[in-house]
């Protein structure tokens, strides 16, 4: 099940994965993608939890839009990600870039830019929450304008000069922003990074770019810390590391789960998959097995105090009322 309308990122990934699950699952069952859109994926996720048999034959593909409302406890969420077992995930990193007009030469320049920083975003509870937390972690002043329709329009806003600092997901960055960088109209300054083993590490698709953590060190000479930083790491985990995960009900029959795990592993080493699903992968590998399950458990184990801090932060600073 894909809790989004057809054609979106999650849907495309699920459709790219489907034939390979058919190939590698024991018994070669036919795999069908069913879309149940609504409520920003909350409807589909609720349906999966409450209205689908826990028989190991029903899976769900989610994304940050499904994880964030769960973590933040938004109204309407009836699903519990802790009751799901992740089978595989494809991470999706993000690159942060600025306009040359702000006069950026090194991270410290973000504290005193040549022009005030303006950021165009979509929603305070979506992927943008990572950036809102990043401004807190780095202690920089950014005028944030939310409400754009998607990451495509925010990129257009950057090109038009409506904003001068933006981020794009890896695949969009490569397709749309790299030509701007080549034309000297954009400067990449960092990636959002990726959570691995409880640490924020460099994005494997952009190993030459520093992470927010390294920017902080460069600006202040010490490691970032505090509730904003803990929250930042949690949301990077939930949006970047497990960007496109596939889950099954944890209380499904153990043989079914074992079959799925084996198929996921086989898929992750199948050269045909890497060739055919190149676009859907966007340059990242497939994450499976014990490693994945531990990472997800860590992400879901965010302390309530940090989540409460984020809720208060979003309510007070950004006027979000539905938390």
């Amino acid at each position: 099940m894909v809790p989004f309308a057809p054609g979106g990122g999650t849907d495309v990934t699920a459709r790219a994965l489907a034939p390979f699950f058919n190939k590698h699952l024991q018994g070669k069952p036919s795999v069908q993608v069913v879309n149940v859109a609504g409520g920003g994926s909350i409807t589909g996720a609720n349906t999966y939890e409450l209205n689908r048999p826990h028989d190991g034959l029903h899976l769900i593909a989610t994304s940050g839009s499904t994880h964030n409302p769960y973590l933040l406890g938004q109204t309407g969420v009836k699903y519990d990600l802790k009751k799901l077992t992740p089978i595989l995930t494809i991470p999706q990193g993000a690159v942060i870039y600025v306009s040359p007009s702000i006069g950026y030469k090194e991270p410290k320049d973000l504290l005193k830019p040549a022009k005030p920083l303006v950021y165009a975003g979509v929603s305070a509870t979506g992927w943008d929450v990572i950036m809102l937390l990043a401004w807190e972690v780095l202690g920089i002043e950014v005028k944030t304008v939310l409400g754009y329709e998607g990451r495509g329009p925010t990129r257009v806003a950057f090109e038009q000069g409506e904003s001068n600092i933006d981020f794009q997901l890896a695949s969009a960055y490569k397709a749309q922003v790299e030509p701007l960088v080549a034309a000297k109209k954009a400067i990449p300054i960092a990636t959002q990074g990726m959570m691995k083993g409880g640490q924020l590490v460099r994005d494997p698709a952009f190993p030459e770019l520093p992470t927010i953590r390294e920017l902080h060190i460069s600006m202040y000479g010490k490691e970032p810390s505090g509730p904003a930083w803990e929250a930042y790491k949690a949301f990077v985990g939930s949006n970047v590391t497990i960007a496109k995960p596939l889950w099954v009900h944890s209380d499904a029959p153990p043989e079914a789960i074992a079959n799925l795990r084996a198929a996921a592993y086989a898929l992750s080493v199948d050269p045909e998959f890497y060739e055919k699903a190149r676009e859907a992968l966007g340059g990242y590998g497939v994450f499976v097995g014990e490693d994945l399950e531990k990472t997800v458990r860590d992400i879901m184990a965010v302390p309530e105090s940090v989540l409460e801090w984020v809720r208060k932060f979003l309510r007070d600073k950004y006027g979000v009322k539905s938390l």
């Binding site: 309308a5 057809p6 054609g7 979106g8 495309v12 459709r15 676009e279 859907a280």
Partner: peptide, 10 residues
């Protein structure tokens, strides 16, 4: 929007 998804798949 769906067309875009289809193009990515291809």
């Amino acid at each position: 929007a769906i067309l875009l998804g289809g193009l990515t798949l291809m």
